[in-house]
Structures are given as C-alpha cells and as structure tokens.
C-alpha cells in the first residue's frame, strides 16, 4: 500500500511556481528522500502534505485518505518535524512533549509509557526535565523529533532533520531514523546533503525549481544519470602541465579539478595500473591517484546543468 500519493501538486505564489505539477508516491515502510537545493520546493511540498499550506492545485492522499478533505484524520496519521525545532524555550522538554501529546489526545499512562519508550530510542531521558532554551541544538532536535512521533504516526515527515548537526551527531540521527522505520513508520525526509540521501533513503526524488527531475533508488539514479567513474591523478604541482600533456598523448580526455587531472573511465580498476605504468615510464610519478564513483551530486549536475554547491551558494 502507498503511504503517500502526491499527484500533479502545484503551488503558485504570485509569479513564482514553488511546486510545478509534482507527482510521486511513497510505499509504506520505506525511507523516501526529497533531495534538492534550498528554495527548490522541498519544504513547501512537505508543508502541503502536512496540511500547513494549501496547494494551488493537485491532490495528496495519505494512506488512501484525501489530505485536504479529511484533514483531522490525516493529521493523526502524520508526524511532522520541520526545520525549526518548534519547541517552547521556556518550558522543559517534558512540558513541551506533554503539550503536544495533549493536542493529539494522548495523556496519562499512555503518554508516560510512550515517552519512556521513545526516550530510550532517542537517548534523551537525562535532559527531559531541563528547559529547552538551555539545551544544545542536537538535544533540541531530538526532543522536537520525539514530539513529532509521540502519537505513533504512520507517516513521518522530516524536513532537513540533520541540518546544522556535526557529522557524528548526524550519523547518530540516522540511527534514530532507521529505528523509527523499524518500528513501522514510513519516512519522508528532505535533505540537501547528497551523502545523507545516498546512505539513508530507499528511494529519492531530486527536486529542482519545484519540479521532480529524477526519481528512483540512489544506485539506480547514479547509474542512469551519474555518468562514468573518474580517475583523478594528483601530480606534483610543477609537473601538472607535463602530466596533462602525457595523459592527452594516451588519447584520454582530461579535465582539471583544482590540483588534479580527471579522466573519465568506465572501468577504473583496469585503467589505474595502466596509467601509473605509463606515467612511470615517462619518469612522472603522481603524488596520489583517486577513483571517484558517480554521486548523487553528479546526478544533480547532469540533470540540471548546475553543480549543487553553486546552487546552494
């Protein structure tokens, strides 16, 4: 069964089409990523699904229910965690959770047991009694996430859940997301970190300027749109031009990438020993050689004609 079906969803602000006929579906139990730069329409899309914004046209169905006509029922199926932590700084973590739980009609013993269970998963038990404005960013994110899953939503929407976290905290957060999936939630998350989408998501939709430009499993997208692998040769700087000339002599197409020289190849494992041997025979020993497989970044570049880093400013 599909947890989410988005069909021809369009959102227009004046002259700007924030979402342009977006169509995709999320299968129950999967982690589905929306990948794209800031301003690509990811947040608008998630907020329309969560019922916070109304669309200009199109439809959204959550577990078969029309998200706009049956808003109250759908809101019980969805847990929404936006980019902001959405917590009251002058209340403790516990008080914040209690308030959110009450909005979903969860209280008493049921609430306490759910908090106990989730605080184990999220590792937040020891700071639940502290005021939120005295907690670190990572701690706040965990409480905010917990507030979003208190009512055991079947579809969890996470908007940039790891933005601003250091790499270690980000990895910890991925573990939490996997555990929540294992608990039975379907997860729709947005990110602009390519490696996050690659590592975490079963399927990814790449969004640019309000349109879905590609959709599929990360490996599939890389294979289809990522181009070939590249071998990057890093010679001594003073030998850069000479090495480039020698590589061209070999009939290779070479592009400069900073201090390195990139050579596109379909079979890097075979290409590297041959390259090294040829360069050595000319008395040119590279400092190091790297093999780079296509990434989702390459997919974005190939599909939009712009590198993601440039789009992110």
């Amino acid at each position: 069964m599909n947890a989410l079906e988005v069909e021809r969803l369009t959102k227009v602000y004046g002259e700007v089409r924030a979402l342009d006929s977006v169509t995709f579906s999320v299968v129950e139990g999967e982690i589905f990523g929306l990948l794209g730069p800031n301003g690509s329409g990811k947040t608008t899309l998630m907020e329309v699904v969560a019922g916070i914004r109304s669309p200009t046209s199109g439809s959204v169905r959550v577990f078969g229910l029309d998200a706009f006509r049956r808003r109250e029922e759908v809101s019980r199926l969805i847990g929404f965690n936006p980019q902001e932590t959405m917590l009251y700084g002058d209340l403790s973590g516990w008080e914040n959770l209690r308030f959110v739980a009450a909005l979903y009609g969860l209280d008493g013993r049921e609430f306490r047991e759910r908090v106990k269970e989730l605080s184990e998963i999220l590792g937040i038990r020891h700071f639940l009694d502290r005021r939120v404005d005295r907690l670190s960013g990572g701690q706040r994110r965990r409480i905010s996430l917990m507030a979003s899953v208190l009512h055991s939503p079947r579809l969890l929407i996470l908007d940039e859940p790891t933005v601003g976290l250091d790499p270690e905290a980000r990895r910890d957060f991925w573990d939490v997301i996997w555990r929540l999936r294992d608990e039975g939630s379907t997860i729709l998350l947005s990110t602009h970190y390519m490696e996050e989408a690659d590592e975490l998501c079963d399927r990814v939709a790449i969004i640019d300027r309000g349109r879905v430009v590609a959709l599929g499993r990360p490996e599939e997208l890389k294979r289809r749109h990522g181009g070939t692998a590249r071998v990057i040769v890093y010679p001594k700087l003073r030998l850069l031009e000479e090495v480039e000339r020698v590589l061209r002599e070999m009939g290779l197409e070479v592009t400069r990438t900073g201090d390195g020289l990139a050579v596109e190849t379909g079979n890097p494992e075979e290409r590297v020993p041959r390259l090294t041997a040829y360069l050595s025979s000319r008395g040119l020993r590279p400092e190091r050689i790297e093999i780079r497989s296509p990434t989702l970044e390459d997919v974005f570049l190939n599909l939009t004609g712009r590198p993601l880093a440039e789009v992110m400013g």
Binding site: I52, S75, R76, M86, L87, V100
Partner: peptide, 14 residues
C-alpha cells in the same frame, strides 16, 4: 516567531 504555529496547525486540534 518560534515556528510552533506549524506544529499547532499540523495537529488535529481545530
């Protein structure tokens, strides 16, 4: 200002 209005609206509370 806190962004908490989003959580309120996303909840089933009218």
């Amino acid at each position: 200002l806190l962004g908490t209005v989003k959580r309120l609206i996303a909840s089933p509370a009218s």
